[in-house]
Nucleic acid binder design. Structure first.
Lengths: 162, 162
DNA sequence: GGAGTGATACTCGGATATCTGGTGTCCGAGTTTTCGCGG
DNA sequence: CCGCGAAAACTCGGACACCAGATATCCGAGTATCACTCC
């Protein structure tokens, strides 16, 4: 079980767009340059976030992406589900209904016990991701970044933001 | 992000081996027949569980697999990690250290905030899976199964178990 | 000087190749059973 | 009838193809900008 790399990229882009402010747009090329990732592939994930309603796109020159809502109203789970999809990691194949003991589906009253446990774990995972927002990550990014890097970042942003 | 189908198979096999008792072994072919899955592929996952120390293998005629410990001492997490691997779903690529703001690694004092959140979610997921054991699943399997199916299953087991 | 207009340049969006990891399969090594034989 | 031994059959274990989904890329549709022209 492996989470797509695009999730990490999308989160970092969300944080950077949070710093760009509610009216500051950044195009795909700039976002890719800042994070050192291939722009063409990053575009795919930004589109997914746009479709999910997390980002707004602005066409034409001086265009780009901006956050569709304040950073404290976008959870980490929102980004993960936008890029990775909303379906749970575990999908019950109902193999208890196969083989020699198989019975008609209507005779199975309760959900498969394995399915229940997996759903609970999945819910716990999502709950944890829902507890953090992009605003929280922005705070963490500032605290964890080296002073020199922050300084360069601020200058870079002043030049890149629209 | 998708969990391998083999995890579901491994859990069902673990439950069935739990019903077989501490000395009752079942070969791959029987386990596959009971669950209606391809035996050759199921073998791959049973081997993984054996390597992880969850199952004991018995060679030769009348051989097969049995649980290496009592069912209440094998957690769902044990099975998941045996088959799916122990590494977390999210792996931080440290892309914050790339691009124009990059600094030497030693200047980054704290862990990437995104990495922290992902690790917490991963831990919550694993904690939840650790709370249930094969013994719990056995109870759930009996309660959730149709009476007719249970009856057939008991007869099948009496004939198949070694 | 100001407004209108056309060309331009830049943006996103979806459709298209490539490649890694899960899916599925096979045959060889090893061990227990079992059958036959001799005492 | 009992013990011994060799062959056989059945088991697991790891090595080998195949395919779906993630990875990576490109070109076309659309729009705000900007320069130029005309009033």
């Amino acid at each position: 079980m492996r989470l797509s790399d695009g999730v990490e990229w999308g989160l970092h882009c969300g944080v950077l767009l949070g710093f760009a402010g509610p009216d500051g747009a950044l195009p795909t090329a700039k976002l890719a340059e800042y994070h050192g990732v291939p722009a063409a592939y990053l575009a795919k994930h930004l589109q997914a976030m746009s479709r999910a309603g997390l980002l707004e796109s602005v066409q034409g020159p001086k265009g780009g992406y901006r956050l569709a809502r304040p950073a404290d109203q976008i959870t980490v789970l929102d980004v993960v589900e936008a890029i990775d999809g909303e379906e749970p990691a575990f999908r019950c194949a109902e193999i208890r209904r196969r083989g020699p003991t198989a019975r008609p589906a209507r005779e199975y009253k309760s959900m498969c016990a394995i399915h229940v446990v997996m759903n609970q774990a999945d819910a716990a995972w999502r709950d944890e991701l829902r507890r953090s927002t992009l605003a929280d990550l922005m705070v963490g990014a500032i605290e964890g970044a080296p002073p020199k890097g922050l300084e360069v970042g601020v200058r870079w942003m002043a030049e890149a933001v629209r």
